[in-house]
Write a protein that binds this DNA or RNA. Structure first.
Lengths: 145, 145
DNA sequence: AAAATAAAAGATAAAAAACTCTTTTATTAA
DNA sequence: TTAATAAAAGAGTTTTTTATCTTTTATTTT
């Protein structure tokens, strides 16, 4: 198991892919995205539906339709994608799954975890989706399996 | 979803509980552990079987039997528990689930993630199970839901 | 207006994770 | 040496996650 659910991994990769491929005003279809990020097509369709509902990506139906991102969506922090799919358990919940865990009644790992949770949150909230475009354009980073 | 699987959360909590309750040479039964950490009893039994197989906790059958930890097991780093249950995906895999991701062919989040993964690994490898006993003894930390 | 296209929505299937129950084995105590 | 105890092992079930397929709706082009 990684940090994110598989669904969330696909979500992040697809958002990066869409951002990268629609900078110029184009649109991309589910098929293209799925193949571009090596994800199961129909499953990805469901994920994009959800992201679209939440306004994290934009879409239009019909010929020449597809998914895209505009200036507003490109500016969104990565944490919005993660929260949309996996919720906020990663940076708000107790590492040992205790609902009673708090500052005043901490679990044994509470303080150790706090550092990590904050680090994760910082990383996800301080970077926008757009931030990753340049490296993708330059071919420095990749999204395929 | 948290950082660890639910199974792993139970595993960590149970190990802390056993360490805390058997410092003095006593043993604890599955029943006691399950109730002490608010976990499903039969499910916990399976988890403890696995931890026992791997030598992370010790056990004996029969009357006055149960689980316990000795000096050697108490000295083990927490990472051994996590690795036994969740594997090492948390600190070795790619955050976006890409098998191809590497230093030379990184995913977009690769470098951001590296910091986090290292932080998590450091936390889990630098603390021994025993380290958490004192705070449990003092009633500062808790393991119950 | 009809045909074509592409996402949205709905329904189902497969796999994995979480959880439960029963039987067996080892150990102890009466 | 029998009965009792407690973990180990085996065999399920349930729930959640992941994945697939089909039908509907919106949009565009002919």
């Amino acid at each position: 198991m990684g940090i994110f659910s598989k669904t969330c991994e696909y979500a992040i990769r697809s958002v990066f892919f869409i951002a990268h491929r629609t900078e110029n005003g184009n649109k991309v279809s589910i098929k293209e995205i799925a193949s571009g990020i090596s994800s199961p097509e129909y499953f990805l369709a469901k994920i994009l539906q959800e992201l679209s509902k939440r306004g994290i990506v934009k879409s239009t139906k019909g010929p020449n339709g597809g998914f895209f991102m505009d200036d507003e969506t490109l500016q969104r922090p990565l944490v919005d994608v993660v929260e949309a799919i996996d919720g906020n358990g990663l940076f708000s919940g107790c590492g040992l799954g205790l609902v009673s865990c708090s500052e005043s009644k901490p679990c044994p790992l509470h303080h150790e975890f706090k550092v990590i949770r904050e680090e994760i949150y910082k990383m996800l909230s301080q970077t926008t989706i757009k931030d990753f475009n340049e490296d993708l354009n330059l071919g420095i980073t990749n999204l395929k399996k």
